[in-house]
Amino acid sequence: MHPPTWLTAFLDLPADEFDAAVAFWQAVTGYSLSAYRGEREEFATLLPAAGDAFLRVQSVESGPAGVHLDLHAPDQVFEVRRSPGGLAYCLVSGTESERPAPTTWEDGNRSQVDQVCIDIPPALWDDECAFWASATGWELVQGGRPEFRRLRRPARQPLNILLQRLDEPDGPVRAHLDLSADDRAAEVRRHERLGAQVDRVHEGWTVMRPPAGPVYCVTGRVPSADPT
Rank of each mutant, 00 (worst) to 15 (best):
3 P>R: 12
3 P>M: 13
5 T>E: 06
8 T>E: 03
8 T>C: 09
10 F>W: 10
10 F>Y: 11
14 P>K: 07
17 E>P: 02
18 F>R: 01
18 F>T: 04
20 A>S: 13
21 A>V: 10
21 A>T: 05
28 V>I: 10
28 V>T: 03
30 G>K: 00
31 Y>C: 09
32 S>L: 02
32 S>Q: 02
32 S>A: 15
32 S>H: 06
32 S>D: 04
35 A>W: 12
36 Y>I: 02
37 R>Q: 12
37 R>V: 11
38 G>P: 07
39 E>N: 14
41 E>D: 14
41 E>V: 02
41 E>W: 11
44 A>R: 09
49 A>S: 09
52 D>F: 03
53 A>N: 06
53 A>Y: 09
54 F>W: 00
54 F>M: 05
56 R>W: 10
65 A>C: 01
68 H>C: 09
70 D>P: 09
70 D>S: 12
72 H>P: 00
74 P>R: 00
77 V>A: 14
82 R>N: 11
82 R>L: 05
84 P>V: 06
88 A>D: 04
90 C>H: 12
91 L>Y: 05
94 G>A: 03
95 T>W: 09
99 R>T: 00
112 Q>S: 14
112 Q>H: 11
113 V>S: 06
114 D>L: 01
116 V>Y: 07
123 A>E: 15
124 L>Q: 12
130 A>L: 12
132 W>E: 00
135 A>Q: 13
139 E>I: 13
145 R>S: 15
145 R>I: 12
146 P>W: 02
147 E>C: 07
147 E>A: 14
149 R>H: 13
151 L>D: 05
158 P>Q: 03
158 P>H: 08
159 L>F: 02
160 N>V: 08
162 L>D: 10
166 L>V: 06
167 D>R: 04
169 P>V: 01
174 R>N: 07
175 A>I: 09
176 H>A: 06
177 L>I: 03
180 S>R: 03
182 D>P: 09
187 E>Y: 05
188 V>H: 01
188 V>E: 00
191 H>C: 13
191 H>K: 08
192 E>A: 02
193 R>T: 14
193 R>H: 13
198 V>C: 08
200 R>A: 10
203 E>Q: 14
204 G>A: 10
207 V>R: 15
208 M>I: 09
208 M>D: 02
209 R>D: 11
213 G>H: 08
216 Y>M: 04
217 C>S: 10
217 C>Q: 03
218 V>F: 09
221 R>S: 13
221 R>N: 15
225 A>Y: 08
226 D>A: 00
